[in-house]
Amino acid sequence: MTNERCMTRTHIELWNERVLPDGLVPVSFGTVLRGSLLPIAVWLGVAAFVYFIYNPIVAALEGGLFLAFLLLGLTLRRRSGHSAKCSLYGATGGVLDKSMAGF
């Protein structure tokens, strides 16, 4: 897969699709993050809450969980033939998207 084909709406699913341009166009990593502001806020809010209420170790465990899911997504995308850049974009957007599935 080429980078141009991989960096499209069909390969990077964003939780908040309103930030994507119309059609299949390349998107930047900033667009991926801007489309995921709510999931990022939730992850950071939960981490801050458990840091101050429970223990910093619990917040580190949450960060480790996020990192584990991100690395799993990167590995699966690289094995399926995506480029490193596409894998990073897709894994980041995917983890943030799937973490908000219950909301």
Rank of each mutant, 00 (worst) to 15 (best):
M1P: 11
T2W: 04
N3L: 15
N3A: 15
N3S: 15
E4T: 10
E4C: 08
E4I: 14
C6F: 08
T8S: 15
R9F: 04
R9C: 10
T10I: 06
H11Y: 11
H11N: 15
E13V: 12
L14K: 05
L14I: 10
W15M: 09
N16W: 03
N16H: 03
N16Y: 08
E17M: 11
V19Q: 06
V19W: 03
P21E: 05
L24T: 13
P26H: 02
G30C: 11
V32E: 04
G35N: 00
G35S: 06
G35K: 01
L37D: 07
L38P: 11
I40A: 00
A41S: 06
V42P: 15
V42D: 14
G45I: 01
G45P: 09
V46N: 04
V46H: 04
A47G: 08
A47F: 09
A48G: 09
A48Y: 12
F49S: 13
F49M: 10
V50A: 03
V50E: 12
V50I: 01
V50W: 09
Y51E: 13
I53A: 14
P56T: 02
P56I: 00
I57G: 04
V58F: 09
A59C: 02
A60K: 12
A60R: 07
G63Q: 14
G64W: 11
G64F: 11
L65A: 10
L67R: 03
L67K: 01
A68I: 02
A68S: 12
A68W: 05
A68L: 14
F69R: 03
F69L: 13
F69Q: 01
F69D: 05
L70T: 09
L71D: 00
L72F: 08
L72W: 11
G73R: 12
G73F: 07
L74K: 05
L74M: 11
L74E: 02
L74Y: 07
T75E: 12
T75P: 06
R77H: 06
R79F: 13
R79C: 02
S80F: 10
G81C: 07
G81S: 07
S83A: 08
A84M: 14
A84G: 15
K85G: 11
S87Y: 12
A91V: 03
A91H: 09
T92I: 04
L96Y: 03
L96R: 07
D97Q: 15
D97W: 09
D97F: 14
K98D: 13
K98I: 11
K98T: 14
S99F: 13
G102A: 06
G102S: 12
